[in-house]
Amino acid sequence: MRNVLVVLMSCGLAGGAAFVQARELVEKDRYMCSWGAGTAAKAQELKLSGVSLYAARQKLQTYKFSKPWMRMMAMGITEQTYDSQSRLKPAAIRQGFYDDCVRYKVARK
């Protein structure tokens, strides 16, 4: 009986630790997912309004980014958005990107 109790408690603690780590990862990367979702939504908005990919890239070059990785990631997100055949509204793109990003970050941990 004592062995069963020890095994159950250790499994419970291990599961709780994994949950806390996954939750911590989401909180730490929430900004990046939110920023990427906003970038994807803006790119979709430009695409639906008829702005060319070249003009969208030029517009990105004028933005001031707070972190060095943001410019290249914004370029990649914009290109992927333009390559897709999707005609969804920018709000749907934002939510889908955010959900997928969070799911990826949690699964990666």
Rank of each mutant, 00 (worst) to 15 (best):
52 S>M: 06
39 T>N: 01
40 A>R: 05
72 M>N: 11
98 Y>V: 10
16 G>M: 02
25 L>A: 15
96 G>M: 15
41 A>Y: 00
45 E>V: 05
21 Q>H: 09
29 D>M: 13
73 M>Y: 10
100 D>Y: 03
21 Q>E: 14
33 C>E: 10
22 A>K: 09
11 C>E: 11
3 N>Y: 08
78 T>L: 04
47 K>W: 03
17 A>V: 14
65 F>H: 00
34 S>G: 11
21 Q>P: 05
64 K>A: 14
101 C>S: 09
96 G>N: 13
17 A>Q: 07
18 A>F: 06
81 T>N: 07
58 Q>L: 15
98 Y>M: 08
9 M>V: 15
83 D>T: 05
73 M>C: 04
89 K>T: 07
43 A>G: 12
29 D>I: 07
14 A>N: 06
23 R>P: 01
62 T>Y: 03
52 S>C: 09
104 Y>R: 15
108 R>H: 15
2 R>G: 06
40 A>F: 10
50 G>D: 04
33 C>N: 06
53 L>A: 11
62 T>W: 06
53 L>F: 10
108 R>W: 13
11 C>F: 14
19 F>R: 05
13 L>Y: 12
30 R>Y: 09
74 A>F: 00
57 R>F: 10
29 D>P: 00
20 V>R: 05
28 K>T: 15
81 T>L: 02
42 K>E: 08
93 I>H: 00
29 D>L: 07
77 I>F: 04
9 M>E: 04
69 W>A: 02
5 L>K: 11
